[in-house]
Structure formats: structure tokens, C-alpha cells
């Protein structure tokens, strides 16, 4: 269910831009906040608010990796696996987290608590290796720091 308030926010955004469809991306974020991922109801609400067809909205949503196609875990842990982090052993951090959480990258723990992702450069290359938990950065990650983090979150 997309709340009336959320729909109102989307309609306001559509008025804020020189062209209503420019509000499609921020509106998709609102839909995702409401339901955790992009649902059919989310697509419908966005389409209505910004004056696009549902298919058109879906084609935008599927282009961008940050709109979830299914419900992710409560904590999304993103480990950067790009070059500067690679040079600073991000692979050992990733393998450690895979073992610790008992899942492979791209998967969600059965209890729905954690989703583990390998992601591209997070613009933190000088403090590698790095990861993000629900958008918050953790820099200069060591295996101990990774463990402590999971302990904290559990």
C-alpha cells in the first residue's frame, strides 16, 4: 500500500520540476521507502503522480540498481570490490562476511536480517577497504572491525 501522504509527496515533486516526469526517480525512492522495494502498487502510484505509463516507469526503475526488485534484508551490507579496495584486500573482507553470515554475495540471510552485496567503487577509495550498512560508511575495514559490526547489528 502506498499511503495518501506518499502520493501527495510524489505529486508535489512532479510540480517542482520543469517537466513532471523528472520526478520519476525521487518518486520511486518514496515508493521504495513505503514498501521496502518496488511493488506493482508502487509503480502504479508513481505512474499516476508523474503522468507516465506503468511500463514506462518500470523501464526506468529496472535501469537503476538501487531500486530493489524484491524485498531486501533489514540491513543491506555493501562491500566495495573495485580496484582500490581490491588492492587493499577487500576480497578477504567479503569472504569473511560470507562465512560469518552463511550466505554468498547477492543473497539474504534466511531470517531476513542481512543482505550482502558486492558493489562498485563507493567513492571512498583512500580509506579502503570500505563497506556501507544501509547507506552508512565504514572505512578501513579489518576482519575484526567487520565482526564487531555484525555483532552490533545482530
Amino acid at each position: 500500500m502506498i499511503s495518501e501522504k506518499a502520493k501527495e509527496r510524489m505529486r508535489e515533486l512532479a510540480k517542482r520540476y520543469p517537466a513532471a516526469r523528472s520526478a520519476v526517480m525521487p518518486s520511486l525512492y518514496i515508493a521504495q521507502e513505503e514498501e521496502g522495494y518496488i511493488t506493482r502498487a508502487g509503480l502504479e502510484a508513481v505512474a499516476e503522480a508523474v503522468g507516465m505509463t506503468i511500463d514506462d516507469v518500470e523501464s526506468v526503475a529496472t535501469f537503476y540498481t538501487m531500486y530493489h526488485k524484491q524485498a531486501p534484508g533489514k540491513k543491506i551490507v555493501k562491500v566495495c570490490t573495485s580496484i582500490s579496495c581490491y588492492l587493499r584486500n577487500c576480497d578477504s573482507v567479503m569472504e569473511h562476511l560470507e562465512q560469518r553470515l552463511g550466505i554468498k554475495r547477492g543473497e539474504t540471510t534466511p531470517d531476513g536480517n542481512f543482505t550482502l552485496q558486492g558493489v562498485e567503487c563507493l567513492a571512498t577509495c583512500g580509506y579502503a577497504p570500505v563497506l556501507q550498512v544501509n547507506g552508512q560508511f565504514v572505512e578501513n575495514v579489518t576482519l575484526e572491525k567487520a565482526d564487531a559490526l555484525i555483532d552490533d547489528l545482530e
Binding site: S84, E120, C121, G126
Partner: peptide, 9 residues
């Protein structure tokens, strides 16, 4: 998002 770049952030 260019790997190796972290100034704008």
C-alpha cells in the same frame, strides 16, 4: 563513481 576518485563526496 570513477574507481579511484573520492573528492566530490
Amino acid at each position: 563513481s570513477e574507481p579511484g576518485t573520492f573528492k566530490d563526496r
